[in-house]
């Protein structure tokens, strides 16, 4: 129950970050979407024990975060909130994979721990990139980007309407849940029948609302399509961003500058 109250304002906050202004915010959403996808694919394409080649990828979220003037603390908190699943699965790695892979002094580190660290690192990088994408573009711009990249119109319209009515229905669910809590006199946890009737009421209201929205749409000439009058233009800056990051990411992925830099430094000092 607490989740409604805690996550809705939060959800709105992520959305409000998108209305800020920065060089990153001004980029074409398609460019940001493609770069983010490339970033994620690059990160997850390493083998399971990859740690050191993954670390340099942090440059992407760090640079975007600062350029887009996003609050790092907030994103970090969201990362922590989302981490349980990856951790749950990853935590088995040290149990099943006990072969010692690395000696640091007298400390022996097994492959499992390394792959767990790798999983968590992947998790942080991919989720951070996705969050930055949303926070610097806004959901509706991303939907527009999807539409222009060829996603089916019905799906894009569905995303837009879902996003619009999330808050409205979330509030309604909250009111229903509060009304129920008022009358449950401190008993914790809701039983199945109660939740079913709660959901059914919410559902009935939702169906009525859908009917009204449909009428409102019809009154203004709705013909099955939602049109957005928002020109998207890929300019020189957008191209530079896309090409620059593509080159950088591919370089990080296939050339792997880290060991080279390391060896260069190592060679100098020893």
């Amino acid at each position: 129950m607490a989740r409604i109250e805690s996550s809705f304002p939060d959800f709105g906050y992520l959305d409000s970050l998108a209305s800020r202004d920065s060089p990153i915010h001004r980029l074409d959403p398609r460019v940001k979407l493609l770069t983010t996808l490339l970033f994620i694919v690059c990160v997850v394409s390493f083998d399971r024990y990859a740690l050191s080649p993954l670390l340099p990828f942090a440059i992407y979220p760090v640079v975007l975060l600062t350029l887009a003037k996003l609050p790092p603390g907030y994103l970090l908190r969201k990362l922590l909130l989302a981490s349980p699943f990856a951790l749950c699965i990853g935590i088995f790695n040290p149990l099943f994979d006990r072969a010692i892979l690395l000696h640091v002094g007298s400390l022996e580190i097994s492959g499992g721990w390394i792959s767990l660290a790798s999983i968590m690192l992947r998790f942080v990088l991919t989720v951070a990139a996705a969050l930055i994408l949303v926070a610097s573009s806004g959901f509706d711009s991303l939907c527009l980007a999807l539409a222009r990249l060829g996603a089916p119109a019905a799906f894009v319209v569905q995303l837009l309407l879902l996003h619009r009515y999330l808050f409205v229905l979330g509030d309604e669910a909250l009111r229903l849940a509060r009304a129920r809590a008022q009358r449950s006199f401190g008993r914790h946890g809701i039983e199945l029948p109660v939740v079913a009737s709660l959901l059914a009421q919410l559902l009935l209201r939702t169906l009525d609302r859908a009917q009204r929205i449909y009428l409102a749409m019809k009154c203004r000439g709705f013909d099955g399509e939602l049109r957005l009058l928002r020109p998207l233009r890929i300019g020189a800056t957008d191209l530079c961003f896309l090409i620059g990051w593509t080159a950088a990411l591919l370089c990080l992925r296939f050339v792997g500058p880290a060991p080279m830099i390391g060896r260069a430094i190592g060679g100098m000092s020893w």
Partner: peptide, 17 residues
């Protein structure tokens, strides 16, 4: 009645249709 993502889009909904 306000089903579009932004105010501008919503006001433009009718004329675009």
């Amino acid at each position: 009645q306000l089903f579009m993502p932004r105010v501008f889009d919503d006001v433009a909904f009718g004329p675009l249709n």
